[in-house]
């Protein structure tokens, strides 16, 4: 049964990818990439990669689509056709693809128990993480404890990416945008038109924020964690911005505050590492945080997940603010 579902989902995925290639209207491509993300999440769930599916669910349809839309709002809705037919490029792509397919022949079959990936460190993670880390969700214990250093790197990457986007797009002329919006009279009159939407969203935003907090603090026991929680929390803010305008959203939390919060998240993560060093352990070795190693692990994971969550949330909202203030300038 699962095989049939997998095959059907993969067929849909292939069809969507082909359609994305064939269509040159950028808007249609954005819509289809939303479907692509939904299909990916379903596939991940059916292949038991629940935490990956959770990330795809949080990012794929919501924030990704909104950012892509802001981009075509600021640029163009039509893809430019290539000046010539790049036959050589096609040849290179086909050759590389053939080599890659040839390479996969040496790889162990999917789910093969003798595959190297199941023998190196995986048995230790599976058997010992309950005693060593004490987290029910093994993915969480690997990500935030065994591989805590990698996750610190990823958080710094997100932080840097956000700073780069804001540095490139920036908030130049933001005041002007606010004035223009007010001059166009779309602050109050516009709102009255969408009464149903406004009330529905007002009811939904607290639920979204609450669910984000649940994902944040439930990461030890189920799928999810700081990254997903940050993205969902940011989705709540984007809802607010879409409905009540950029000015109102920036009055709730300004870009300056957001950049401070983003830095605070990374500092929390790094600070936990430094604290463990000062308390006589290795970098990010949470065992020394409390007398009982398991309690120490629990506290350490809680703190670094909080750091990841705040950084991801503020960077996502910051990027969205930067994109939408840009869009306002072009209108």
């Amino acid at each position: 049964m699962e095989l049939i579902i997998d095959i059907t989902l993969l067929t849909f995925l292939g069809l969507t990818a082909l359609a994305i290639n064939r269509i040159d209207k950028l808007f249609c491509i954005i819509m289809l990439s939303g479907i692509y993300s939904l299909l990916c999440a379903s596939l991940f769930v059916s292949m038991d990669a629940v935490d990956v599916a959770f990330t795809e669910a949080a990012v794929g349809t919501g924030i990704a689509t909104v950012l892509l839309l802001s981009t075509i709002g600021a640029t163009d809705t039509q893809q430019r056709s290539a000046p010539q037919r790049p036959l050589f490029a096609l040849l290179v792509v086909c050759a590389t693809g053939a080599i890659l397919v040839y390479g996969t022949m040496d790889m162990p079959a999917f789910g093969d128990p003798d595959a190297p990936i199941h023998h190196h460190v995986a048995p230790r993670y599976l058997e010992m993480s309950q005693q060593e880390v004490g987290s029910d969700n093994i993915v969480t214990s690997i990500l935030s404890s065994y591989r805590g250093f990698d996750t610190l790197g990823e958080t710094v990457v997100i932080f840097t990416a956000g700073l780069s986007v804001v540095g490139l797009i920036g908030f130049r002329g933001m005041q002007k945008f606010g004035d223009r919006q007010r001059a166009a009279g779309i602050t109050q009159d516009d709102m009255g038109k969408h009464l149903v939407l406004r009330i529905v969203i007002k009811m939904f935003i607290p639920l979204i924020l609450l669910f984000a907090l649940y994902v944040q603090f439930h990461g030890d026991f189920g799928p999810g964690g700081g990254f997903q929680a940050g993205v969902i929390f940011a989705s709540g803010f984007i809802f607010y911005t879409l409905m009540f305008g950029l000015d109102a959203a920036m009055r709730v939390v300004s870009p300056r505050t957001l950049s401070y919060i983003a830095a605070l998240g990374v500092l929390t993560y790094g600070g936990v590492g430094i604290t463990t060093l000062l308390m006589g352990g290795n970098f990010l070795d949470y065992n020394v945080l409390r007398p009982d190693p398991l309690q120490g692990q629990h506290l350490g994971i809680f703190l670094i997940e909080l750091g990841v969550g705040t950084t991801v949330f503020s960077i996502m909202v910051l990027i969205f603010f930067a994109f939408s203030s840009r869009k306002g300038l072009r209108q």
């Binding site: 629940v50 599916a53 669910a57 349809t61 909104v66 939407l197 979204i208 189920g222 984007i238």
Partner: peptide, 23 residues
């Protein structure tokens, strides 16, 4: 217990729809 993922979609799926229609 993996219903959480379905819940995320139920909560944030219409974000893109609203964004498109505002667009």
């Amino acid at each position: 217990d993996f219903l959480d993922i379905a819940l995320v979609y139920a909560l944030v799926n219409f974000l893109s729809t609203i964004a498109v229609l505002r667009f």
